[in-house]
């Protein structure tokens, strides 16, 4: 009996996660183009489907029907592996994300750690992509992504630590539950919240920190040589990483599924798409900074402030 429940649960989780990944990509790409359009006095997609909602589906079909070109000098196994390494971890990273008290693919004591660790694999995928296709632009893009990693990952972790101190757990579900009887952690930790926002913009390779792509300097950065479906895997991975990062942000700082009137999943999705909209807003407002500016920003501003914030929180918690 228990065996059967486990199997059904696993199948449902796989189905649910695949649905979330697919539908999220369709919706977010559409939203991104709409937001970009309206922020530039345009309309964005309007033709395919109601208000252009099916535009992404049409684009997806186009990408599927395209030929995948393998550069002659590419390291083929790595070339093929890179998009897969980018995409697979996000499926796993969605496992511990709670959408309501009961809707969660798998409850893990160390859910937060898992998500953070899997987030790093994205960079590995980017590095492999840049290395494998034997293209100077791709390699430059990939090396930038690796240089970027330390500048945002440490502040990111230092922003999460105060939340761990406040809630006393690494489980994403428990962190939300801890906010049930108190204020949302964003109000206790506004500085950590802000730095976390910046750090996830860096982590998901979004403008103004999209050096790995940097289409005005590096053609298309690490995925210059990718075409057709392999290219869209990167695309899918990027938008799903954004979704995961936004979900973690709403769990850590905005109380996850908690909220009045609506059921849990509605609140969770509202908060996730609030963060996604915020990231689009950043992208279509701020110009890309230079690599050295980004690095000194990460090391001289994000790191000391988040460290200070963490020590302060720890000190106050110890004193109380």
């Amino acid at each position: 009996m228990i065996m059967e429940i486990t199997i059904v649960r696993t199948l449902l989780s796989i189905l649910g996660i695949t649905l979330v990944v697919g539908l999220n990509a369709v919706f977010v790409v559409w939203l991104e183009r709409k937001v970009a359009g309206h922020m530039q006095y345009r309309l964005g997609p309007t033709e395919v489907g109601p208000a252009g909602l099916l535009q992404t589906v049409a684009d997806g079909l186009k990408l599927v029907s395209k030929q995948i070109i393998f550069p002659r000098s590419a390291d083929t196994p790595i070339f093929i592996l890179a998009p897969i390494i980018c995409l697979v971890p996000v499926f796993v990273a969605l496992l511990p994300v709670p959408f309501s008290e009961n809707i969660q693919a798998h409850e893990l004591d160390v859910g937060l750690l898992l998500v953070i660790a899997l987030g790093l694999l994205n960079t590995l995928g980017i590095l492999l992509a840049g290395w494998g296709c034997d293209n100077k632009y791709a390699l430059l893009g990939a090396s930038r992504a690796v240089a970027q990693i330390l500048a945002y990952k440490i502040p990111l972790l230092l922003c999460i630590l105060p939340i761990i101190l406040l809630s006393g757990t690494f489980s994403l579900r428990e962190i939300v539950v801890a906010q049930d009887h108190s204020l949302w952690f964003a109000l206790y930790q506004p500085v950590a919240f802000l730095i976390y926002l910046v750090a996830i913009t860096m982590e998901t390779n979004r403008s103004p920190f999209d050096f790995a792509e940097a289409e005005s300097e590096l053609v298309a950065g690490f995925h210059t040589e990718y075409s057709g479906m392999m290219f869209s895997l990167f695309f899918l991975a990027e938008y799903t990483y954004m979704f995961v990062a936004a979900a973690i942000a709403s769990v850590l700082f905005l109380g996850g599924w908690l909220g009045p009137f609506f059921p849990g999943p509605v609140w969770m999705l509202l908060k996730i798409y609030f963060f996604l909209f915020l990231m689009m807003w950043f992208r279509w407002t701020f110009p890309r900074v230079r690599v050295d500016q980004m690095l000194s920003f990460g090391w001289k501003i994000l790191l000391p402030i988040s460290l200070l914030n963490f020590l302060l929180t720890a000190g106050v918690m110890a004193a109380l």
């Binding site: 937001v35 309206h38 922020m39 345009r42 309007t46 807003w281 407002t285």
Partner: peptide, 13 residues
């Protein structure tokens, strides 16, 4: 950008 987004676009359909 937010005020731009809330004003009507210039596109003629």
């Amino acid at each position: 950008t937010m005020t731009t987004m809330l004003t009507k676009g210039h596109t003629v359909e």
